[in-house]
Design a protein around this nucleic acid. Structure first.
Lengths: 349, 349
DNA sequence: GTGCACAATGGGAGCGCTCCCATCCCGGGA
DNA sequence: TCCCGGGATGGGAGCGCTCCCATTGTGCAC
C-alpha cells in the first residue's frame, strides 16, 4: 500500500510502482522510466505518462532506484561539532540554509548527521549505508579521524571551513589568516600598540589560522605579543574571561576570533568601566546580526556563511557530474566592517 | 568497490555483498542473512560468518535491504520552523540530542529535514521516498498542513510539542497551559496585581496555551488583563519591545513566554532604570543555561527538552514494534524554578 | 521501390537483499 | 528397523527500479 494515498474510489487506484503507471498509461515500464529520467520519448507519450503519474500520485521508490542505479540523489551533510557550538553559532545556521537551498534547487535530498555518534561509528555507518552520492563535511579540528576517513574514502566529499593538508581534498573556506591579519592591521593603523587577541577553540583550523594572522600583523608592525593572547572557545563566556586577562596585561585593543566572544569582552569592559573604543578598541569576527546593534556597534570581519554553503553544494555537484574532476578549492572573500567599537563616533580613536 | 577498504592484499578482499561473505565463509547467502538478522543458526556457523564479515569489512546495503524488507531502520526528524528560531533556541538543541541519543541506542538511523522546502514539497518527498520507518515531527503551528498530512499518512508519526486535535495522533509534550498558570500564580502570590504577559509566536500551540494559562490564573485571582498582553515571537528583540509596551501600561510583573524574551525585557527595564524585582518582577520560560546567571537570576519554568526527544523516540519505537499500538500520548512534567528576578535576595518582593 | 539511419518503444537481466519453502540430517519413540 | 519431528541450511522468487539490447516504425536518399 502506497502510503499517503487515501482515496477510497472504485478501483485499485493505489498505485505504487512504475509498472502500475505503465499499465495505466498503456506503455511499458521502460518508457515511463524514460519520462521520469529524461530519455528520448515522443511528446505525446510523455504527456500521457505524466498525466497517468499525476492521477495515481506516483512517486519513485528511493530504495529501488538507488539499488538499481547506484545513485540515490541524497547528499549527506556531516556536522560533527560539539552541540553547544552548533546551536549558539549562527555560522551553522547560514551554512545550513545555503546548502539546503542549493541542494533543493537541484532536486537533491539532504541528510544531516550531527555529532550523536562517535567519529568512528559515524564514519562506518555513512560509508556502510552506501546511501549518499556525496558528502559535505564541516570539521574544524586540525586532526579529525572522521574527516580523514571520509576524504580517503571513494565518496565524493567537500569540506567546509577546513583546508585539509591532503592535496586531493576538495574544500570551501575563507582565508582566515589573511582576514585576521587585516583586522589586526586595522587596529594597528589606529595607533594601537598593545593589541590583544582572544582565540577561538584551540586545535581548530580557524582558530589557529586567525591566531597566525594576528601574530603576523603584529610582527610586521614590530609589536610584541607576549602575554597578549588569551585562549577562548568562540563562546561569550570565554570572551568575558579573556578580556579580564588581557585587561590585566594592559591592552589598548582586543581582537576576538568571534563576535560572540567580542560581546562577552565588551561586557567585561563595561563592567570594569573601561571605555570602548577610547580606552580599548574591540573587534570581532563573523559579523553576526547583533554586531551592528551592539553598543558600541562592533567592528568585525564579515563572512557570508550562506554563500559558503551554496559554494560547497556547487563544488560537490561538480565532483558528482565529472568523476575526473580535479579537487575543488574555493576561497571566499571576507569583508572588514568598521564600526564604532574601534573608531569612535567622530572618527577619533 | 566497497568504499573505505584500503587493504592491498593478495586477494579479492573487496567484498561488498552478502554472497561474497557467504562464499568466503562457505555457507549460503540465506545463512549469512540469518546471522545478521538474528535467525536460528548454529553457534559454529555464526562464529565463522561473523569472522568472515569482519575480515571483509562487509556492511549491508541499505537500499537493497529497504527494498526487500520494506524497512529501512531510518527515522525521519522533521523540524519545520523558521531558521532564526531554530538556531537561537536551545530548545531544539536539547530535543535533537535527546532524539539522536535514543535512536542511536537502538541502532536506528536519523535523517533530518529542515525547513528548506515548502510544506507541500516536504510532505510529498518524505512520503514519496518511502525511506523512513517512522517520523518525529516538531511543528508548533496550530494549523499546519505538513503536520496534518503526515499524521493522516500511514507512516508512524510522533509529534513533539504539539497536541494535535486529531485523536489518532501520537505526541510528546509538556502542559504549557498548566505551567503558565503556575508561574502566573507564583507572581500573583507575591502580591503582584498588574501582571503582564509577553506571548510567544502567535498562532503557535505553545504560545496560545501559555497565554490561556496566564489568563486563567489572572481570572481566578480576579485580576484584569486588559492591555497587559504584548505579542512577542520568542526572540529577545520582541522581549525588549514587549517590555516597553507593558511598562507604559503600568505593570508590576512580567511573565515572558520564553527566557530569551525575558532577557530582552530585563534589558529594557535596566535601560529605563526600573528595578527587578523591586519595581517589576520578571519570569521566563525554558530555564536556559543563562537564566541562572542573568542579573538578577531569572525565575522560570524548566522543561527538559532532552527528555522530550528521548520520549518521542521511545514512543515511536512503541508504534513501530506494534502496529496495533494505541496512539502514544506523553506529557512531561515541568518545574517552577524560583530565582531572584521575582523574589529578591532577602526574600522580599 | 528498396534500403538504411534513426527515433521510439518493449523486454529482460540484474542491483543486494529478505523471506518463504524445500531439503537435509539428526535423534528418539514405536 | 522404520518413521517422524524439528533444527540447520540452501535455493528461489521477488522487492521496484535502471540500463542495455532487441524490435518496431518512420522518413529520407538513392
Amino acid at each position: 500500500m502506497a502510503p499517503g494515498i487515501g482515496h477510497e474510489e472504485g478501483w485499485p487506484q493505489v498505485v505504487g510502482t512504475l509498472d502500475d503507471v505503465a499499465a495505466a498509461s498503456g506503455v511499458s515500464r521502460s518508457t515511463v522510466s524514460r519520462v521520469i529520467n529524461g530519455g528520448s520519448v515522443s511528446e505525446a507519450t510523455r504527456h500521457r505518462d505524466l498525466a497517468a503519474m499525476g492521477e495515481t500520485g506516483y512517486s519513485p521508490n528511493l530504495a529501488a532506484r538507488t539499488l538499481a542505479s547506484g545513485r540515490s540523489g541524497v547528499v549527506g551533510v556531516v556536522i560533527h561539532v560539539p552541540p553547544d557550538l552548533l546551536f549558539q553559532d549562527i555560522f551553522f545556521s547560514g551554512l545550513f540554509h545555503g546548502i539546503a537551498e542549493a541542494l533543493a534547487q537541484r532536486g537533491a535530498g539532504m541528510m544531516l548527521w550531527l555529532a550523536n555518534l562517535s567519529k568512528e561509528q559515524t564514519l562506518e555507518r555513512i560509508l556502510g549505508m552506501r546511501l549518499f552520492d556525496g558528502l559535505i563535511v564541516t570539521a574544524d579540528m586540525l586532526d579529525d579521524p572522521l574527516v580523514d576517513g571520509l576524504v580517503r574514502s571513494s565518496l565524493p566529499t567537500v569540506l567546509v571551513g577546513h583546508r585539509h593538508r591532503d592535496r586531493s581534498a576538495s574544500y570551501v573556506d575563507i582565508d582566515n589568516e589573511r582576514a585576521a591579519e587585516q583586522i589586526t592591521d586595522h587596529l594597528i593603523s589606529l595607533g594601537r600598540r598593545r593589541v590583544g587577541h582572544i582565540t577561538g577553540r584551540r586545535g581548530g583550523v580557524s582558530a589557529e589560522e586567525r591566531l597566525t594572522g594576528y601574530r603576523r600583523a603584529m610582527k610586521r608592525a614590530g609589536l610584541a605579543t607576549d602575554g597578549l593572547v588569551a585562549d577562548g572557545d568562540y563562546l561569550a563566556r570565554s570572551g568575558e574571561a579573556g578580556a579580564e586577562t588581557l585587561l590585566a596585561a594592559g591592552v589598548d585593543a582586543i581582537f576576538c576570533a568571534s563576535d560572540t566572544m567580542a560581546f562577552g569582552a565588551m561586557r567585561t569592559l563595561e563592567r570594569r568601566g573601561v571605555r570602548v573604543p577610547d580606552d580599548v578598541a574591540v573587534a570581532g569576527f563573523d559579523d553576526l546580526p547583533q554586531a551592528a546593534e551592539a553598543s558600541p556597534p562592533l567592528t568585525t570581519m564579515r563572512q557570508d556563511t550562506g554563500r559558503l554553503g551554496i559554494e560547497a553544494a556547487h563544488a560537490l555537484f561538480r565532483l558528482l557530474n565529472d568523476k575526473e574532476a580535479a579537487p575543488q578549492r574555493v576561497i571566499l572573500p571576507t569583508e572588514l566592517i568598521i564600526r564604532q567599537s574601534t573608531v569612535g563616533p567622530l572618527g577619533q580613536p
